[in-house]
C-alpha cells in the first residue's frame, strides 16, 4: 500500500513509542487493579494483510473476548483489548473472587460487564496517556464487549482500511501477568488519515 510503504524506520519507531507509552500506562492500571506486577512485551508495529491480523491472537476462528472502543477526536481510530477465555476467567477470578469452577461454560451478563469495564479502564488509560503525550484529542466511545471469533471481531476495525488496500497498520502490545496466567493484547488501529497528525504532533515531519 503506497501510503504506508514510504514510512521510514524512524517513523515506525515513533509509532512503537506511541504503543509503548499507551500500553505502559494501561499495564500500570492493570497492575494496580490486580495488585500484582504486570509485564509488557516490546510493542510491534506492523503493516499486516487483513488475513494475518487475526493470526496474532490465535487465528480467525479462535474464540476471544474483545472490548472495542472507537476513538474519536483529532486522531481517530479503532482500539481493541483482546484476551483469551482462560485469561478472562483468571481476571474474573482475581478481581471478583469468582473461583474458576463457579464459572460455568459461557459468561453471565455480570461477568461480561465486568470484563467490559476492565477493558474500558485499560483502554482509557492507554488513550489518555497518548492524548497527553501528543496533545491530540482522543476520546474513546462507550465500550462494547463481545465473545466471538477473532476474525469477525477484528475485521470490524479494518473497514477504514478496506477502501484503500488489503492491509492495515496496527500498533500491538502484549502484556503478561507475573505467573503468565493472564495474557492480553492491545490493538490500536489508527485510521489511515491519523498517522500524519500523530507524526506532526510529535514533531516528526511526514512528507
Amino acid at each position: 500500500m503506497s501510503l504506508f510503504s514510504r514510512f521510514e524506520a524512524f517513523e515506525l519507531d515513533v509509532l512503537k513509542e506511541v504503543g509503548n507509552i499507551g500500553a505502559g500506562n494501561a499495564a500500570t492500571a492493570l497492575s494496580r487493579l490486580l495488585d500484582k506486577p504486570v509485564d509488557m512485551a516490546v510493542p510491534k508495529v506492523s503493516l499486516l494483510p487483513f488475513e494475518e491480523v487475526a493470526e496474532r491472537v490465535g487465528g480467525s476462528e479462535q474464540v476471544v473476548i474483545a472490548v472495542f472502543l472507537r476513538v474519536e477526536g483529532e486522531a481517530p481510530g479503532n482500539m481493541f483489548f483482546i484476551i483469551q477465555e482462560q485469561s478472562a476467567k483468571s481476571l474474573l477470578n482475581q478481581l471478583l473472587s469468582l473461583r474458576p469452577e463457579e464459572i460455568e461454560e459461557g459468561y453471565s451478563e455480570m461477568e461480561m460487564s465486568a470484563l467490559c469495564e476492565i477493558g474500558n479502564i485499560l483502554a482509557g488509560s492507554y488513550l489518555s496517556s497518548l492524548a497527553d503525550f501528543t496533545h491530540l484529542t482522543m476520546a474513546p466511545s462507550v465500550p462494547s464487549v463481545a465473545l466471538d471469533m477473532a476474525g469477525a471481531i477484528l475485521s470490524y476495525g479494518l473497514v477504514q482500511y478496506g477502501e484503500m488496500g488489503d492491509s492495515a497498520l496496527l500498533i500491538e502490545t502484549t502484556f503478561l501477568e507475573d505467573r503468565q496466567e493472564l495474557e492480553g493484547h492491545f490493538f490500536l488501529i489508527p485510521d489511515p488519515e491519523s498517522f500524519n497528525k500523530i507524526f506532526k504532533a510529535l514533531g516528526v515531519t511526514a512528507e
Binding site: 487483513f50 488475513e51 487475526a54 475485521s155 470490524y156
Partner: peptide
C-alpha cells in the same frame, strides 16, 4: 477463501471462509 477473496469449487470440493463479521 480469505478475507476480500473469492474462489470456485467443482468435483465435490468444499469452499470455506472463516470469521465473517460485518463481511
Amino acid at each position: 477463501v480469505g478475507m476480500a477473496d473469492l474462489n470456485i469449487a467443482t468435483d465435490g470440493a468444499v469452499l470455506r471462509t472463516t470469521g465473517l463479521g460485518s463481511c
